[in-house]
């Protein structure tokens, strides 16, 4: 089992503290749900973890290895809110460019992907693109995944497929997930964290979300 630990994360925008000494950990085999209101700093935290955004301070460790600075880390993959796929190439090329041999073959054979292989990514609907992105990350070799709104724009059927795949693949991965569909996040997660005023709080049950004002 591998463990990712993020500690002492601080981020300030225009003199306002967005993240205040945040600590978060995630192990392979678990899904951590990250909830919070719009603008609470969830996406900022994920970008800092991934290394695409510089923090005022960040300490990141995977098992015994410590990562300093804001470099991206091969063992962490990040699903941004907006599509990151190259629109001008085909679905098949995308899969082959993103995944190594064995995993590429598995995804190419999936029933939800097979009919789309010859399509250009730019011709897919937003939901189809989102499904493909989540699949690419779930079948990547990285041990940790940061999923920012993976269910955004997905049809109920695709949501079900993706939820099932997340449950199946979490055996090999540590997954941190955030989405406005809090019910889906709660049902998938082994632990729930709430981002509030730049601080992370552990939530034990739905009452906890109510007491912190996330739910009414």
């Amino acid at each position: 089992m591998s463990k990712l630990e993020l500690d002492s994360v601080q981020k300030t925008y225009d003199g306002q503290k967005i993240l205040n000494d945040v600590y978060l950990q995630c192990s392979t085999g678990e899904v951590v749900g990250l909830l919070g209101r719009n603008g609470s700093g969830k996406s900022t935290l994920l970008k800092i973890m991934f290394g695409s955004l510089t923090a005022d301070s960040r300490f990141l460790r995977i098992d015994e290895k410590v990562y300093t600075g804001s470099k991206t880390i091969r063992d962490i993959k990040y699903l941004p809110q907006d599509s990151f796929l190259i629109k001008s190439i085909s679905v098949k090329s995308t899969i082959n460019l993103f995944l190594s041999g064995e995993y590429s073959r598995i995804v190419l054979e999936l029933p939800i992907v097979k009919p789309l292989l010859r399509e250009r990514v730019g011709h897919l609907s937003f939901g189809q693109r989102r499904t493909l992105e989540v699949l690419l990350l779930l079948f990547s070799e990285s041990r940790f995944l940061l999923l920012d709104e993976p269910f955004n724009g997905l049809s109920p059927t695709s949501r079900e497929v993706i939820s099932k795949l997340i449950q199946e693949r979490k055996e090999h991965k540590g997954i941190i997930i955030t989405d406005h569909d809090y019910r889906n996040v709660i049902s998938l997660s082994d632990r729930i964290m709430l981002m509030e005023y730049g601080n992370l709080r552990k939530i034990e049950d739905l009452d906890g979300l109510t007491s912190y004002g996330y739910l009414t």
């Binding site: 091969r74 941004p80 990151f84 190259i86 460019l97």
Partner: peptide, 13 residues
């Protein structure tokens, strides 16, 4: 552009 994340996710800095 968001496509930058395609390369960053592929381990290219």
């Amino acid at each position: 552009p968001k496509e930058l994340f395609f390369y960053l996710n592929n381990g290219i800095s």
